[in-house]
Write a protein that binds this DNA or RNA. Sequence first.
DNA 1: AATGAATGAGCGTTCATTCAT
DNA 2: TATGAATGAACGCTCATTCAT
Lengths: 218, 218, 218, 218
Amino acid sequence: MSGVQERQTAPKTLPGTYAKGRTRAEDVLDAAVAVLIKHGYHNFTLRRVADEAGLRLGNLQHYFPSKDALVQAMLDRVIDTYLARLGRIQSSGLDPEDQFRKIIETLFLDLNTRRTTVFFPELWSLANHNRQVAAYMERMYGRYRELLGASITRINPALGEKQVRQIALFISASIEGHTMFVGHGKPWRAQTEEVLGLATASFLWLVRSGETPVVPEK
Amino acid sequence: MSGVQERQTAPKTLPGTYAKGRTRAEDVLDAAVAVLIKHGYHNFTLRRVADEAGLRLGNLQHYFPSKDALVQAMLDRVIDTYLARLGRIQSSGLDPEDQFRKIIETLFLDLNTRRTTVFFPELWSLANHNRQVAAYMERMYGRYRELLGASITRINPALGEKQVRQIALFISASIEGHTMFVGHGKPWRAQTEEVLGLATASFLWLVRSGETPVVPEK
Amino acid sequence: MSGVQERQTAPKTLPGTYAKGRTRAEDVLDAAVAVLIKHGYHNFTLRRVADEAGLRLGNLQHYFPSKDALVQAMLDRVIDTYLARLGRIQSSGLDPEDQFRKIIETLFLDLNTRRTTVFFPELWSLANHNRQVAAYMERMYGRYRELLGASITRINPALGEKQVRQIALFISASIEGHTMFVGHGKPWRAQTEEVLGLATASFLWLVRSGETPVVPEK
Amino acid sequence: MSGVQERQTAPKTLPGTYAKGRTRAEDVLDAAVAVLIKHGYHNFTLRRVADEAGLRLGNLQHYFPSKDALVQAMLDRVIDTYLARLGRIQSSGLDPEDQFRKIIETLFLDLNTRRTTVFFPELWSLANHNRQVAAYMERMYGRYRELLGASITRINPALGEKQVRQIALFISASIEGHTMFVGHGKPWRAQTEEVLGLATASFLWLVRSGETPVVPEK
DNA sequence: AATGAATGAGCGTTCATTCAT
DNA sequence: TATGAATGAACGCTCATTCAT
């Protein structure tokens, strides 16, 4: 047993036909995220989640019949929430560069939240041992890069599709990589702003430098 | 049980005074890394390590009296190995920019190995729930940034200390962030070379652009 | 939990006053038998029965308030059905020996049905750990032997009551014993006919051989 | 999960390399049989076996790493014991008919032991839901019938092979069928002797009556 | 150095049952 | 009638660990 398994059916609707049950199921998912963050996936147990959610193990398993089902539902929800937040960033009516700066800033500062700092490394680790989680993750980052790509294209419409995708990949990967260094409780957290400045400058240069980025002469 | 604990004593030398015992302990450490990579830390058990190493659980516990001791020794070894490899990169006698390019390339291409791709996310995850591991990690990345910083300073000696450190942080974090995207078995792996090109250009521009990186005018 | 318990009240009528309710309860009993046969009593659970019957666990427990109640009702029904079938055999108007042969044949061939092959061993096993089931079983086999006894007496009216009962016991027990060998899916199933021939001959000889069966001289 | 699974490897040797371990493993098997008889397979749990054997659950699982392994070892042992006893019956130097009578008597009276009365119905039930157990059972009864067949042939050498096998099947099945009626604690137990007389007479007639058993004229 | 014996805690899961809706 | 919510106990099993051999 290597952890989360592939999902057979897509439970679009959460368990809980009665109103009480629905809020209970939500509570459980909140608790699940809290436990994952507090204790890590290697200490993510149903009993802990039940405790955190304030119900009994047997009752938790009434809502989520297996650990896998709970983990899938939890990932579903976290990723959907994350994508929804990404969507809201895009909708601002700023000029291209300011929008880009705003996006980078939002993503970067989000690293500072405990939730993001701790949750995502768990996700990356899980994805390395579970295809379903890997697929979830790819879906999420795909959407992430689409958003970045659109902003990039607005700044430099001359860029080809493929290059936009590669730049978006570089930018998104670079930002994610800061999780372990400027995230919540991390040693470089106090310098988030300055690193954000470097990052933004570097990303903008890349976006503007054209189809074949030419390194400035020595 | 909340995972890896702080270490009481510092085992500079591995147990086993005989040549054979030394080898045995190292076999175990190799097996431990293999298990961590294959199954993830949430499935990292002493029994599995013993199986992988070809000895009995009781015997394994003779070499490493607790799970924590084994994990610490394993991290010690992996990080030492990693730092040794970093040191070797530096020792090449190239001109500043070529050396920098070489460093970036080496680090980047290393992401493609299964070992790196899978091991480091486990480390990041672990560090979020264990101070000792966090300290190990910081030590490792500190050395990593020193190396990068030296190379950066050679290219642009006008940069201040603090700024060098920040640029090194940005670069190292950015590279690490690519683990989940261009690493072994990852969806963008085929485009490693192109992304490496973008990254190198972007990093070099940043290094050259001076104390206060100014984003080029629109 | 030590399995089926003694029954407090005798539910002569199934729950459900409406025609539909009556049908539902019978559906459940059919499902219960199906589950018992498919999975064995050690895997006989209310959830499985509910699934098989196409209703929810909560609803099933409306019809049968406990597992014991369901098991008792199921045994009641199966045994009643079995006794009814036995009664029909008797009613044929053949001459004594032909009737006897017909009875033996019917009982023997019935072993071949999956239902009989699997259900009865479960019953025997259960009876060893539950008095109520043992009582059911004894009632059923008592009627079985009465039927056989009547047929035996018609063939050889000289036999005493006790001897008739003993011969009937031997015959019925012998037939039951073939369940595990010539029953549905059993290795000797293909030879049912021949074994039936041996059995019938042996039984008839016994019935005819008088009050004190004397083994023919060597 | 439908109970006992097929066995991958044949553990000819019981667990327990140390002397202490070996006797412990035997204790566990004894306890397992006791639990099976006392509570039935549907209440056969590792915790109960551990209690009965006077060790802890964790230790029991050191000897038998799974429930299946325990059940297989238990069946192995019981069946081997049974076959050994059968073998001893045969070795008596009586004349053919007396030997046959002795065999029948031994088998019949064995039904009276609680062990036999309760154990075998569990075995029959299990065999209906598990191939491995079915194979065990067939192996055991095959040997049983060989023994009977040899005795039958000594009495009536004119019988063909196939007929001997069929008669042996009939006899063995008939005897087994008495388990539920004259076994330990069963209602007809007091009449075991008389039924044994009927059975022996009937079987002997069958054996002697020649290749095509002809039912005596009406 | 190496292995087995033994423990106690905890795991995910299943279950019969009760109660509210 | 019918269903979901909730409970508590037990299940087989895995685990890190300690101790004796």
